[in-house]
């Protein structure tokens, strides 16, 4: 434990988190536009969108929706802060899941067909990515012998050198969370018109957008934990940022070369690829340790 992020750094990071997510989203839209040979919106477009939404009048179908939107943002905010302060990965994971439950409840709380199907699909998505996410957290825990984020900084080698395959599986989680093809099924705008978000408007829709910024930061943050270089703070920051951006770039590419699949295809793919990869990798780590120990 020769590197402890300072308190000040953690506070700054948790304040900057949504804006980092926002900037990444802005670059995403720009790069996607360039890949499609378009001009694309300004980098700050997600920010302008949210500012504009806050200026709009709100038309909510049910009061309960507001509560669920606030809870959703609240839990994500909490887990972001936990991540920035090096908290427990397991708690972070459960907080994110709770947030998604609130999001789904918000979708279910209104009487709209598209919102209802969106809620259903959100649950299917959770069914697809939660096992991968949890197993990844577990495999990190097995390696570091703890679920605390700051333990990762105390390892001898970067996590990616020991367990690279869960990172590949996490890519599936990432695609689902970022609402990218082939797994953008819950917000599929040509099928169910943004599903769970359809009955939100004005400031509360803006809240959901901000929650999405948090999500981006959280998932990229957790994935780039694999690239912590122990004992070298500067290199750690550089490699984490580079890894985060690289992961995002890969997801943009995948988004641009695939079509959206059915929810059952998604479940099958995530179970077959995601879970197998993690299990194989953990098994290899143990076998290697056994052989090394036996020899």
């Amino acid at each position: 434990m020769n590197f402890q992020p300072s308190i000040l750094f953690s506070i700054l990071l948790s304040i900057a988190a949504p804006f980092i997510g926002m900037l990444i989203l802005g670059f995403d839209r720009k790069i996607t536009a360039r890949m499609q040979n378009r001009v694309g919106p300004p980098i700050l477009q997600p920010f302008y969108d949210v500012v504009k939404l806050f200026g709009k009048s709100e038309l909510m179908v049910k009061k309960a929706q507001i509560l669920f939107a606030l809870m959703f943002v609240g839990t994500l905010l909490l887990s972001t802060v936990l991540l920035c302060f090096g908290g427990d990965l397991l708690v972070i994971f459960f907080l994110i899941s709770t947030g998604m439950i609130f999001y789904t409840l918000g979708a279910y709380s209104v009487k709209s067909g598209f919102s209802f199907i969106g809620g259903n699909r959100e649950l299917y998505q959770m069914l697809a990515y939660e096992p991968i996410f949890m197993l990844t957290v577990f495999s990190v825990g097995l390696i570091t012998k703890s679920f605390r984020v700051d333990q990762i900084f105390g390892l001898e080698v970067p996590l990616v050198a020991i367990i690279p395959l869960p990172l590949v599986s996490m890519m599936i989680v990432f695609l689902i969370k970022m609402q990218k093809s082939p797994f953008d099924i819950s917000t599929a705008h040509t099928e169910i018109i943004s599903g769970p978000m359809i009955e939100y408007s004005g400031g509360y829709l803006a809240l959901l957008k901000i929650a999405h910024w948090y999500e981006i930061f959280l998932v990229i943050g957790i994935m780039s934990l694999f690239f912590v270089v122990p004992g070298n703070p500067v290199l750690t920051v550089v490699s984490m940022a580079a890894a985060g951006l690289a992961i995002y770039f890969v997801s943009i590419i995948i988004d641009n070369v695939t079509a959206r699949v059915h929810w059952n295809t998604m479940l099958r793919l995530s179970a077959a690829i995601g879970i197998t990869l993690i299990v194989v990798n953990v098994a290899i780590v143990y076998i290697v340790a056994y052989i090394a120990g036996g020899a």
Binding site: T32, T190, N256, V257, R260
Partner: peptide, 16 residues
Amino acid sequence: LGDAIGFESYFMQTWN
């Protein structure tokens, strides 16, 4: 068709 199945880059390319 590309747009309907969420394949935006293909949609843009064909329209180009």
